[in-house]
């Protein structure tokens, strides 16, 4: 497995966190397989021809926009993404903007695009976008937030004095990993909205769906240790008796 190829098609943990979708689905939704070798004797038994490099932008990998942007044969200029050791920007964090017309303003992070080192800050760094224009009608303008680079364009805000600061990951005496402001040494707590997903605000306030198993039923222990395989146990429960002795066989 080549490391770099692996990096190109990997969706960041924090990019998909809010969607609450299983990884299997994300992989299936973004995958573009053009050819798979049929089963049988092949010199390359599991050879697959598929898209290796994806262009990541503000569209989520499981959406139609992403599929359109990465449609077969469509190439994009190479994007250089600065390697970051540890992701430190989360949904609900207060950040200060260092560039553009909203320079110096503070806002809350709304979306994360880890593949590009991008965050979107709510209501800031906006651009007007013209939509629905034709010959007679000038269209309407809508405001759209543009992504900001976490490496240069935004800084976390220290809650003790509400000014921008650089941070460092350190450990507390209890062994918890925390973000610490390098200027004041205060801990910048990770916001509660980190665990928020499209399905629930917090895990405790999840609204149960009709097909969901109740929590008590999940934790109920019905397993009893027994000296039997699964099949033997089921046969016993169903009253199936089998005293036949299997004939001698050979494995090869």
């Amino acid at each position: 497995m080549r490391i770099t190829n692996f990096l190109f098609d990997k969706v960041g943990k924090w990019s998909k966190q809010f969607s609450n979708l299983p990884d299997r689905y994300i992989k299936r939704a973004m995958e573009q397989v053009y050819w798979r070798n049929p089963k049988g004797i092949q010199y390359k038994p599991n050879a697959v021809v598929k898209r290796k490099k994806y262009h990541f932008s503000v569209h989520r990998p499981w959406t139609g926009e992403f599929r359109q942007e990465n449609s077969p044969g469509r190439l994009h200029p190479k994007v250089f993404v600065e390697p970051i050791k540890e992701w430190s920007f989360f949904r609900g964090d207060r950040v200060e903007i260092l560039v553009g017309k909203d320079k110096g303003k503070q806002g809350i992070i709304k979306q994360i695009f880890q593949e590009r080192n991008w965050v979107i800050v709510e209501g800031l760094n906006c651009k007007l976008k013209q939509i629905g224009d034709d010959k007679e009608f000038s269209g309407v303008y809508i405001q759209e937030e543009k992504p900001l680079l976490v490496t240069t364009d935004v800084k976390l805000v220290d809650p003790s004095d509400l000014t921008a600061t650089t941070i460092e990951w350190r450990f507390t005496e209890d062994g918890d990993k925390v973000r610490v402001s390098t200027r004041t040494g205060r801990i910048i707590p990770i916001p509660a909205s980190v665990e928020e997903t499209i399905d629930y605000k917090t895990k405790a306030t999840y609204l149960e769906q009709p097909k969901d198993t109740k929590a008590d039923a999940v934790t109920e222990i019905t397993f009893e240790p027994k000296l039997a395989t699964f099949e033997m146990d089921i046969m016993e429960k169903m009253g199936i008796k089998d005293d036949r002795v299997p004939p001698k066989s050979f494995w090869y």
Binding site: K203, Y206, K211, T213, D216, A217
Partner: peptide, 16 residues
């Protein structure tokens, strides 16, 4: 124990 409420399941109750 409040967290257990999130042990929401796609499936019907196994005990049924």
């Amino acid at each position: 124990m409040a967290n257990l409420r999130v042990m929401c399941k796609l499936l019907k109750n196994l005990n049924i």
